[in-house]
Simulated scan of single mutants.
Amino acid sequence: MKSCLIVDDSKVIRMVAKKILNELGFRTEEAEDGIVALDRCIKQMPDAVLLDWNMPNMNGLEFLHELRKLPDGDRPIVVFCTTENDIDHIQEAITAGANEYIMKPFDSEILQAKFSQVGLL
């Protein structure tokens, strides 16, 4: 079973994403910011990360930079999931190592399509 770390400061977003990803066959873990997420990745690297941009303590972009420096940190598929929708933010995320980018709000079809595109389904 593939694993996905859901990183978002919104408990509601984490709950919705967890329900959808569990239905798609993923084992999920949650983190409320980049610091907690980085600690989880150090303990056990997930197959995928669903990542918010705007969070306290360590934002998504900062987390992504740190993730990619870790041993095996290049392995997880990272899908940014955020309200930041301008081309500069998207380009910055992809340059930093994100594999895909989706906008909030999202639904099951969107997650399924993006996770299929990157070979996780």
Rank of each mutant, 00 (worst) to 15 (best):
I13C: 05
I42K: 15
M45R: 14
R68D: 13
G97R: 01
M45T: 11
K114T: 11
I102V: 14
G25T: 08
I90E: 05
D86L: 01
D9V: 02
Q91T: 15
I94S: 00
P76N: 03
G119H: 07
G119N: 09
R14W: 01
P56N: 12
N54C: 09
D86A: 00
S3D: 05
I94E: 08
K43Y: 07
A48E: 02
E100P: 00
M55N: 11
R40H: 14
G34I: 15
L24W: 09
D8T: 03
L24D: 05
S116D: 06
C81D: 07
A113M: 12
D47T: 03
R75L: 09
H65I: 07
A98L: 02
P105A: 09
L24V: 01
G119S: 10
A113P: 00
S3P: 01
K11N: 06
D33T: 13
G73M: 06
V78F: 07
D72L: 14
I77N: 05
D33M: 14
D107T: 11
L64M: 05
D88T: 08
L67C: 04
T82I: 10
G73P: 04
A98I: 03
K2E: 07
E30W: 00
A31N: 05
D8F: 09
I13L: 06
V79P: 00
K114A: 02
C4W: 02
Y101H: 08
G119T: 11
D9C: 03
G73A: 06
G119C: 12
L50H: 01
V79C: 13
M1P: 06
L121V: 08
I42L: 13
I102E: 06
L61E: 10
L121H: 00
Q44D: 12
G34K: 15
A98K: 02
R68N: 10
I102P: 04
D33L: 14
L24I: 04
T82R: 13
V78I: 07
M55Q: 14
A31G: 06
Q44V: 07
K69C: 07
L5A: 08
G60P: 09
S10N: 01
R75D: 05
A37W: 12
K19G: 09
L70E: 06
M15Q: 10
I102M: 09
D74M: 07
I42N: 08
K43P: 04
G73W: 06
Y101N: 04
D39E: 15
K11M: 05
K69V: 11
V118D: 02
L67K: 11
V12S: 12
G119V: 13
N85H: 13
S3N: 09
N85A: 12
I42E: 13
T83K: 08
T28S: 10
